[in-house]
Design a protein around this nucleic acid. Structure first.
Lengths: 356, 356
DNA sequence: AGCCTCGGGTTTTACGTATAACTAGAAGCG
DNA sequence: CGCTTCTAGTTATACGTAAAACCCGAGGCT
């Protein structure tokens, strides 16, 4: 007696409820095969672009046209399952409110889009957080990872995954990284130093970031080295978090101290430079006549403030693009060389000849 | 006759080449089942949290502990294939270089992370582009879409997908949208008008965006209405693209025209306000003594410029968070009500009493 | 006793794809 | 001719999971 028949209802609604009209059950490769009068395998071969000598041009075209008229689109979950991959990469950055990373992200997404890859974003906890596992919280299965050096804490968990890892704005030859892509920070700082030395400046304040990552260490080292060659050039360092307010505070403090009054302030970032300019104004100093200030990164605010900031323009989008391209290369089995992208000093209104 | 036994070799190297040491073949639910001495189905039931009366607490615990010690993590591609979904949502915005959208994105990602969803970003072509199909370029299979009103062009393709769609910063009751989430733009503009009227201003310049989307239309309408009640209040409108430079140009032009010299400039965005301030300074006007200026959004540059901008603070992250939460609700079959998030006027240095 | 229910599982199947292994006919060839 | 090789496919299987359908022993009810 075949009971168990009378409960028929709960078969539908395979989708929780939403999605409205259930988007009329997409066509599968089998549907295409039926329409084209071939086997499913043949469809797969044709769609996979790997049918060089396996399928005749005639049938290939038949398959393609059947696919087109059915609006066939491969089910990517199935393909991923079969191939053991995900077409998804993780981008790890500390915060998107930082315009630099927002631009890097833009670049990453742009080339990911070209390659049919999805980018899922993981916001690394801001230093304080317990650096929870990205794989637990994000969609967990990934093909590769792009990470900023400023997100170093999260890297332990990532390394554990054994995934291809491209480091951005980070130590070239970073251990465990499959590739690295950086703006040429050192050269940027050299350009700044050259520019200011050429204007006659000798006493500098280096307004540095208070966090200790590659990108900032390089700035400091490059500055020291660039100044070494010039007799009488001295530099004092003050550290501050990367905000306008902190830059202002740190500058006020540094300028209040006796001795070694700088004629130029070299900042690790534009926000610090903006703060420095504000501080100078409050102290009655005129920028750039009394005091030169340089920024770094070339954020939007660099041209919003007055005078506009002389700063080093970092190719943020290009970093993202190159990083994503490098990751694609790694995924394809190639091994890209470390890249250092050129930067350039943009001379605007905050630097001038040193007072004599 | 059971032949077909003798072929054993060509089984390995399932991964194309990359990935280095092949990350030691992850444990599957079957491995867990074997370890726990149960069937694969039982593992699936236990891990799926849907085993209320189907599995005893004893075996459930056995399964969990086996899973833990094997480091089992479900293969999401397989789960997706089975369930016909993707745990991936698409966020459509015009650009991330716009700080507002970067912050919205941050909010979206934050709550997506909580729900184990991935966010893939689609950058809608900047108005000029041919609005290519997001599904072709991005990872194509999605559970839902979040879109900004400024990305309206791409919506046709999205609507075609029949996916749940949450509109951000957009017309409530937007056709085809499953939900909408906006900052309360109208109220923000009312607060601006009230503030300036209270300071004695009567002649206004409205420095507006040149693009025609909900968020900007609302500003204009709210401003007109707020001014309607006050005798003698007049407003002229000037349009410009949302950049500092264009704001500067538009302001210079507007102030150069004879008649109706405004005492206050109300801007649709902070970047326009920054431009307006620069223009005023060039014309020898002192902000705020001679001219008041207000912004909108409260971007980072609002506090970087001097004087700092009086502006309407939009809860960008909250918009992203609420939007993502609404999408999750829709995915769960609920129907969230349209949300209007409160905004607040932040009074800083660019507004003061009108000259008498 | 005969029957149903119910707890606690197991077996089986399906999701849609990619590809290894097989096959059949045609051609090459000494 | 008898052998291999090439072309153009087909068949069969596996990927890892979710869940429907089945199964079995122990009570419970009448």
């Amino acid at each position: 007696m075949t009971s168990g028949e009378e409960k028929a209802q709960p078969r539908d609604e395979r989708w929780p409820t939403a999605r409205g009209p259930r988007a009329g059950a997409r066509a599968t490769s089998r549907d295409v095969a039926r329409a084209a009068g071939v086997s499913q395998a043949t469809v797969s071969l044709v769609m996979g672009e790997k049918w060089r000598g396996r399928v005749s041009e005639r049938t290939a075209e038949a398959v393609r046209s059947a696919a087109r008229s059915l609006g066939y689109r491969p089910n990517l979950a199935a393909r991923d399952l079969r191939l053991g991959r995900t077409r998804t990469v993780l981008l790890v950055v500390p915060a998107l409110t930082n315009e630099f990373f927002a631009r890097v992200h833009t670049g990453v997404v742009r080339v990911a889009q070209e390659h049919g890859l999805g980018v899922v974003l993981y916001l690394s906890p801001g230093g304080t957080g317990p650096a929870q596992d990205p794989f637990a919280s994000a969609s967990a299965t990934l093909d590769g990872v792009l990470a900023s050096s400023m997100a170093a804490e999260a890297l332990g968990a990532i390394r554990g995954g054994g995934l291809p890892l491209v480091m951005l704005d980070s130590d070239p030859g970073h251990e465990g990284a499959s590739a690295t892509v950086n703006p040429d920070i050192a050269d940027g700082m050299r350009q700044v130093a050259g520019h200011l030395l050429g204007l006659g400046h000798r006493r500098f304040l280096h307004l540095a970031s208070d966090i200790d990552t590659w990108t900032f260490r390089v700035r400091a080292r490059a500055l020291t080295e660039a100044l070494r060659g010039t007799a009488g050039a001295t530099v004092r360092t003050e550290r501050a978090p990367l905000t306008v307010a902190d830059g202002l505070r740190a500058t006020e403090k540094a300028l209040a101290e006796p001795g070694h009054r700088p004629t130029a302030i070299i900042c690790d970032d534009d926000v610090l430079a903006a703060g420095a300019c504000k501080a100078a104004r409050r102290l009655g100093l005129h920028v750039p006549a009394d005091l030169s200030v340089t920024g770094f990164t070339d954020l939007a605010l660099a041209t919003a403030v007055e005078p506009e900031l002389t700063t080093v323009q970092l190719p943020a989008e290009a970093v993202g693009e190159a990083g994503m391209r490098a990751l694609v290369a790694v995924l394809d089995g190639r091994t890209p060389a470390p890249e250092a992208l050129p930067v350039r000093l943009v001379t605007r209104g905050t630097t001038a000849h040193a007072r004599t």
